[in-house]
Design a protein around this nucleic acid. Structure first.
Length: 912
RNA sequence: GGGCGUUUAGCUCAGCUGGUUUAGAGCAUCUGCCCUACAAGCAGAGGGUCCGCGGUUCGAAUCCGUGAACGCCCACCA
């Protein structure tokens, strides 16, 4: 019953006292963009540039973006308030492989196969898809309040960016840094393209180790010894080769042993027969084979393993590629005389074939044993399909040069990483850099500007085509020719080959390196991104930056953590633990969501997201809203402000100045969540909890105009402090606070008069500050007594104080202060600093309980005193410690003694 | 196999070059309150062998060594 009533009252109140963000947010975003407040043009002010890490063009907003973009917006908005010319450039990424996959999937749903389309037809579909689904995410960013300069919205495959990419490719080729070559690359059989090393993700897996019998060729197997490592059965001698990938035996070209390994010496110079295949292959020797691992016999399959390929190179072995591009078995490459043995596997999927071949070999008695084995398998980052090492003709960028120019600036903090620990990761990668495979067998992307002489290509084929006959140029070499003499490379470039130019190409700095925008906006200020793309993107931007502008691309890099659910799991579609940010904004307001995500997000730390964080944000908005309502509702009068108002205003001025400094300091260190927390505490505790209660006039009475004006000023200051974090509610209240001119905004440079010295003049010795801080503690003490003794807040009490107190105490505790008055027997006491206060009680107190409490307190104080005195009595301490430390200990001793005296007196009174 | 990082209240984290009233914050918890700004609120309270062990020091959450647990990155052991 009672509960129901309670709910009803609350429900009824909710109607008109809660802040309602929805309407406010759309209205102000419209206003900001209508007035062009996010747009930037070069001018005389200091620039503050941020380029967005471009989300996939067809992506949708997820919690990771919310974190990332909120941080950027906070930095940008703060810079704007500081009077800098802030420019946050938005855009999207063409995301070559991801987008192409999506387009293929859609085409499939429509019954169309990519293979049946020409490149041009496919690209038309891809652009249609992009136009249809592209940029949704940019619209969603507006809901979050992101203050991007939308006039500058770019796309990594728009004209300017494309020209930059092609120009850079040609330039690097001319510098001899790009080459084409036949290499073992990471092949994604699903998308049928090469990948860079960074796009391969290794997973630990429980797999099997298959021990296969390779029989010694008959010609070699006449009279052999018996001993350790020598295997023999009724059919003759054999060696055992352990492999995790039995399906690759069709490409076996040798078995390798370590020349130092005793037990395999008998195999030297012999030949063995690949089981089930029938190919006779030599035993080769190489120290690469680790002694003691497996059987010491390694099958060499140069076409399907990186190491085997290297072995093949040194031992001059041929490579038999037994897979098609989509990782099905291709037996056409196997020798004709062996076709009968292997034909049945033709066309099988690699994993299906693995099962089959093992079964068949077992039937033939060619499997020695099968063991469980844990190993690492590489997966394609994009398609999540196991990578197939594959020999193919690809384009590479030589990286040593870039590593050389990109390492020093980070190590010596010209470019500062937050948190700094990622410097190690960065260093480690650069010091072990490998060439970057930049070509992809995709259509959606920047097509490689390399051209081949058609006739020559037909004649010699791609693999034999001489490097020096490749034409690399920005234009079309067929231009002006009567016939199509040159054909263009079919490949496209890795997406990151355009992303790495982003901070430069956004300002058209590749094509026009001398342009005034680049000169003004570049280097950019801060880059905010996840540590997962430190190699993909951050490192490479630094490389491109120095290569093409001679300068760093950004001064600071802020690495965010990963957003996880409250159980610490990564957010993923399959787990269904990822909330929809738009839904959250609907429920808590954008400001609430921003605060929620920021509160527990120190740089580089994963954040455990929980709705309750947004709730806290929403509640804070409500708090601000209600403070405003209260202030606005006050009646003012042209009366002199009471002394308590002057004390309070002066005290709060100091609070505010301190908080502003603190926020400033924290922001410089990129400790955003702490900065926000500082503002939160200032607003909630000091302003709402204390200040407003202190200046609140008696019921029905007006407030002094001057006090009111100061309060409004404070409020506006706090709105500004808060604006970068919570842009909507602060703009709303900025306008509600007083009449503003059309086009005015809280975002304009902070020109507010803020002469705190005038206010502080009343308090030259800081006496007010100390007084109020003391008052707060006395008030807390009285409240405590009320709570403990169940005294209603409406009941007036007497407070016996050793010294006169500010009127504020009466006001906030509803008490009558008596200075040094005589104490009745029944009192409750508390100590602030070294002063003891007493509140007479009507009821009988529990003497026993009171004594216990006092005795516990006494024990604590005495323990404390002993610790202090031990130090002061220690000669070495007195000799070594700094004078101010000793002084502090003396003060501690003095205070402790006073408190002990007071407690003892109180105990005696209790007893007596 | 290398490298890096973390370990402080139930949870998320501050605590910088050792000394600031015998360790702080927010959230959560418990108790009492709808008192005309706010119950999405207010007031109060409880809660910690600062991962273990050893060392340096007058003094250690803080510095050094060592062990453990967890996390991340890199690496070709088939």
């Amino acid at each position: 019953m009672a509960d129901n009533k309670k709910d009803n009252v609350s429900e009824a109140k909710k109607e008109n006292t809660n802040y309602n963000p929805q309407e406010v947010e759309s209205r102000w975003y419209q206003y900001w963009t209508d007035k062009g407040l996010f747009h930037s043009e070069p001018d005389g002010r200091e620039p503050f540039t941020v380029v967005i890490p471009p989300p996939n063009v067809t992506g949708v907003l997820h919690m990771g973006h919310v974190l990332n973009e909120t941080i950027q917006d906070v930095l940008v908005r703060r810079a704007r308030l500081e009077g800098k010319n802030a420019c946050w450039v938005p855009g999207t990424d063409h995301a070559s492989i991801a987008t192409e996959a999506k387009v293929i999937k859609r085409l499939k749903e429509q019954g169309i196969n990519k293979q049946d389309l020409t490149r041009e037809e496919f690209l038309k579909h891809a652009w249609d898809w992009t136009d249809e689904h592209g940029g949704i995410i940019l619209k969603q960013l507006r809901k979050l309040g992101c203050s991007c300069d939308w006039d500058r919205t770019a796309f990594t495959m728009d004209e300017t960016r494309s020209r930059a990419v092609i120009k850079v490719f040609v330039d690097l080729y001319k510098k001899g840094l790009i080459y084409k070559g036949l290499r073992m690359v990471n092949w994604d059989p699903e998308r049928q393209t090469a990948l860079s090393d960074e796009e391969v993700i290794y997973h630990e897996e429980h797999s099997k180790f298959y021990y296969l019998k390779y029989r010694v060729a008959e010609s070699d197997g006449m009279s052999l010894p018996v001993g350790e490592g020598v295997y023999k059965d009724e059919k003759g001698y054999y060696c055992v080769v352990a492999t995790t990938r039995p399906e690759t035996i069709f490409g076996d070209i040798a078995v390798c042993i370590n020349p130092k390994e005793e037990k395999n010496q008998w195999l030297r110079g012999k030949h063995v027969v690949v089981p089930g295949v029938g190919r006779e292959i030599p035993i080769i020797e190489d120290r690469y084979v680790e002694i003691g691992f497996g059987t010491g016999c390694l099958k060499v399959t140069p076409a399907h393993d990186v190491n085997d390929y290297a072995l093949g190179q040194t031992h001059n072995l041929r490579a038999i590629d037994i897979f098609t591009a989509d990782a099905h078995l291709n037996m056409d490459t196997v020798e004709e005389e062996l076709q009968a043995n292997v034909r049945k596997y033709h066309g099988m999927d690699r994993f299906e074939c693995r099962k089959q071949i093992v079964e068949d070999l077992q039937a033939m008695g060619l499997v020695e044993k099968i063991e469980d084995y844990d190993n690492k398998v590489g997966y394609s980052e994009r398609t999540n399909v196991p990578i197939e090492p594959r020999l193919s003709l690809q384009w590479f960028l030589k990286m040593q040069h870039f590593a050389d120019i990109a390492l020093p600036p980070v190590m010596n903090d010209e470019i500062v990483f937050y948190p700094a620990k990622y410097k190690n990761t960065y260093k480690n990668w650069l010091e072990n850099i490998k060439d970057w495979c930049i070509s992809r067998q995709l259509w959606w992307g920047h097509r490689i500007p390399a051209w081949y002489d058609k006739a020559l290509l037909d004649e010699v084929g791609a693999e034999k085509y001489p490097q020096e006959k490749i034409v690399v140029c920005e234009g079309n070499p067929n231009e002006g020719l009567s016939e199509e003499r040159y054909v263009q490379d079919e490949g496209a470039l890795d997406t990151w080959f355009s992303s790495w130019l982003w901070p430069i190409s956004l300002f058209d700095g590749i094509e026009h390196p001398d342009n005034k925008e680049l000169a003004y906006y570049y280097p950019t200020a801060d880059l905010v991104t996840g540590p997962d793309i430190i190699f993909f993107w951050v490192a490479r931007m630094i490389m491109a930056g120095y290569e093409y502008t001679g300068k760093m691309p950004f001064k600071h890099v802020y690495f965010t953590g990963i957003v996880r659910d409250k159980l610490g799991r990564k957010m993923s579609k399959s787990l269904g633990n990822s909330p929809d940010p738009l839904d959250l904004i609907e429920r808590y307001g954008a400001d609430g969501v921003r605060m929620g995500i920021l509160l527990s997000a120190p740089a580089g730390n994963d954040i455990l997201y929980d709705d309750s964080l947004c709730e806290q944000g929403r509640n804070f908005c409500n708090k601000i809203w209600n403070c405003f309502r209260m202030l606005k509702g006050l009646q003012t009068a042209d009366i002199e402000a009471p002394r308590t108002d002057r004390e309070t205003v002066t005290w709060f001025t100091l609070c505010l100045c301190k908080a502003e400094q603190e926020v400033d300091d924290l922001m410089k260190k990129y400790r955003l969540s702490e900065a926000l927390m500082a503002v939160y505490k200032l607003f909630t505790d000091e302003f709402s909890g204390w200040y407003l209660e202190m200046i609140k006039p008696a019921y029905g009475s007006p407030i002094a105009k001057k006090t009111y004006d100061c309060s409004m000023l404070f409020f506006e200051r706090m709105l500004r402090l808060l604006h970068p974090f919570m842009p909507f509610i602060t703009e709303e209240l900025y306008h509600a606070l007083s009449e503003r001119e059309d086009g005015d905004t809280i975002m304009r440079e902070d020109r507010m008069e803020w002469d705190s010295t005038a206010l502080l003049a009343q308090d030259t010795d800081g006496g007010f500050w100390q007084e109020i801080e003391h008052v707060k503690q006395v008030v807390a003490g009285v409240r405590n007594i009320r709570a403990q003794h169940n005294i209603s807040p409406r009941e007036e009490i007497t407070l016996i104080s050793p010294k006169p107190l500010s009127e504020l105490v009466n006001k906030l505790t509803h008490s009558k202060v008596e200075v040094g008055g005589k104490r009745p027997a029944m009192v409750a006491t508390f100590i602030v600093g070294t002063s003891e206060y007493a509140v007479p009680l009507n009821e009988f107190i529990d003497v026993e309980a009171e004594r216990k409490k006092l005795e516990a307190d006494l024990a604590h104080q005495e323990g404390f005193l002993r610790g202090v005195e031990a130090k002061l009595g220690n000669e070495k301490f007195m000799a070594h410690a700094k004078p101010e430390v000793v002084e502090m200990e003396r003060k501690k001793q003095h205070d402790a003694l006073e408190r002990i005296t007071a407690i003892k007196a109180r105990l005696e009174a209790l007893n007596g």
